Amino acid sequence: MGLTNEIIPHYYPDILKAYTKAAIKTHPKDILVWSALYFRCLANGSYPPVKHRIEFQYNNKNSLFSEITPGMLRILHRHMGTNCKIQTQALTEKWKEVGFPKEFLEEVLQTGGWRKGDVDWLRFIGSVCYKITENLDESLIAACYVLSENTLPCCFTFGQYRYIALHILDRHSELSTEAYLEKVNKIEKISSHQGGMVYMENIKMII
């Protein structure tokens, strides 16, 4: 008994408790792969792949796209830690590491024109959000959550909002550009009174 007490750290129950809560919140598809990444991140002092809250999946017609949620995408964003351009290879490796479907990434890279070279990170976030929500307003709300430095209240800059919105409009001809640009102008006026920030509630208000 004495030997056992010396081998097992006294803080082990706290680690196990935190791990259990993280697993319940995140609900990973592959618990073994996710667990390995979780403890690797703890050992390296980096962000563990943990959602901040339990999420309901979007009712996407394509089952492949329904496997990704804004919370999962937020995890990836925290790991990549950039709003600039990243190499396709680096993104592919990290995508695989966090256990996301390979086919989903291939679809987004192809539609975004990023099969080789660098990936525009903000546009990539917007593309993924649109794939999983199938709605422009909802995709921008999701992007706000992904990019926000805070969980409550969620916000991002007007520049990020506009950049992502215009990218989605440009890639999807079925959307009404003129109608949505009116919303963009309204959001710009609202953000001018909020230090240039756009809050999730602002987007919901003009839907």
Rank of each mutant, 00 (worst) to 15 (best):
residue 43 A to I: 08
residue 94 K to V: 12
residue 81 G to R: 11
residue 140 L to Q: 06
residue 156 F to H: 13
residue 171 R to Q: 14
residue 117 G to M: 06
residue 173 S to F: 08
residue 31 I to N: 02
residue 99 G to E: 10
residue 21 K to M: 09
residue 179 A to R: 07
residue 96 K to H: 13
residue 83 N to I: 14
residue 196 G to R: 02
residue 158 F to S: 06
residue 28 P to Q: 08
residue 60 N to G: 09
residue 74 R to D: 09
residue 179 A to W: 00
residue 36 A to I: 13
residue 182 E to W: 00
residue 120 D to Y: 11
residue 3 L to F: 12
residue 59 N to G: 11
residue 135 N to K: 08
residue 172 H to M: 01
residue 83 N to W: 12
residue 117 G to R: 09
residue 15 I to W: 09
residue 79 H to Q: 14
residue 50 V to P: 09
residue 184 V to N: 01
residue 150 N to P: 00
residue 154 C to N: 14
residue 68 I to M: 13
residue 180 Y to G: 00
residue 99 G to W: 07
residue 106 E to L: 11
residue 160 Q to R: 09
residue 207 I to A: 03
residue 49 P to V: 02
residue 140 L to F: 01
residue 159 G to L: 12
residue 125 I to P: 08
residue 121 W to A: 02
residue 136 L to R: 01
residue 147 L to H: 05
residue 168 I to K: 07
residue 44 N to D: 11
residue 153 P to E: 13
residue 143 A to F: 07
residue 175 L to V: 00
residue 157 T to S: 15
residue 93 E to K: 14
residue 182 E to V: 01
residue 123 R to I: 02
residue 85 K to W: 11
residue 107 E to V: 12
residue 78 R to I: 04
residue 54 I to D: 03
residue 205 M to P: 00
residue 3 L to T: 13
residue 150 N to K: 14
residue 181 L to A: 00
residue 27 H to W: 01
residue 30 D to Y: 03
residue 131 K to G: 01
residue 190 I to E: 05
residue 101 P to H: 04
residue 74 R to K: 15
residue 137 D to P: 00
residue 144 C to R: 04
residue 150 N to H: 10
residue 137 D to V: 06
residue 177 T to E: 09
residue 46 S to E: 10
residue 151 T to L: 13
residue 150 N to M: 08
residue 156 F to Q: 13
residue 19 Y to P: 02
residue 96 K to T: 12
residue 101 P to C: 05
residue 88 T to C: 09
residue 71 G to S: 08
residue 204 K to V: 02
residue 13 P to Y: 03
residue 72 M to C: 03
residue 124 F to I: 05
residue 51 K to W: 04
residue 201 E to P: 00
residue 207 I to M: 00
residue 58 Y to F: 15
residue 16 L to C: 03
residue 180 Y to V: 00
residue 57 Q to I: 12
residue 207 I to V: 00
residue 103 E to G: 03
residue 149 E to R: 12
residue 189 K to N: 09
residue 46 S to A: 02
residue 124 F to Q: 07
residue 181 L to S: 00
residue 203 I to T: 02
residue 57 Q to G: 14
residue 204 K to W: 02
residue 196 G to P: 09
residue 8 I to T: 12
residue 32 L to T: 10
residue 181 L to F: 06
residue 195 G to E: 04
residue 131 K to W: 07
residue 163 Y to C: 08
residue 159 G to Y: 12
residue 82 T to R: 07
residue 75 I to K: 10
residue 134 E to W: 05
residue 48 P to Y: 04
residue 109 L to G: 07
residue 92 T to R: 15
residue 27 H to V: 03
residue 111 T to M: 13
residue 193 H to K: 14
residue 36 A to Y: 14
residue 132 I to E: 05
residue 147 L to V: 06
residue 170 D to W: 11
residue 46 S to M: 01
residue 63 S to P: 06
residue 95 W to H: 09
residue 96 K to V: 04
residue 136 L to S: 01
residue 144 C to Q: 09
residue 76 L to R: 12
residue 193 H to M: 13
residue 35 S to Q: 09
residue 126 G to S: 10
residue 64 L to Q: 05
residue 7 I to R: 15
residue 138 E to P: 01
residue 122 L to A: 03
residue 89 Q to L: 13
residue 99 G to M: 05
residue 113 G to Q: 10
residue 112 G to P: 12
residue 54 I to H: 03
residue 18 A to L: 11
residue 155 C to I: 03
residue 43 A to L: 12
residue 34 W to N: 08
residue 184 V to T: 06
residue 79 H to R: 15
residue 97 E to G: 04
residue 111 T to G: 04
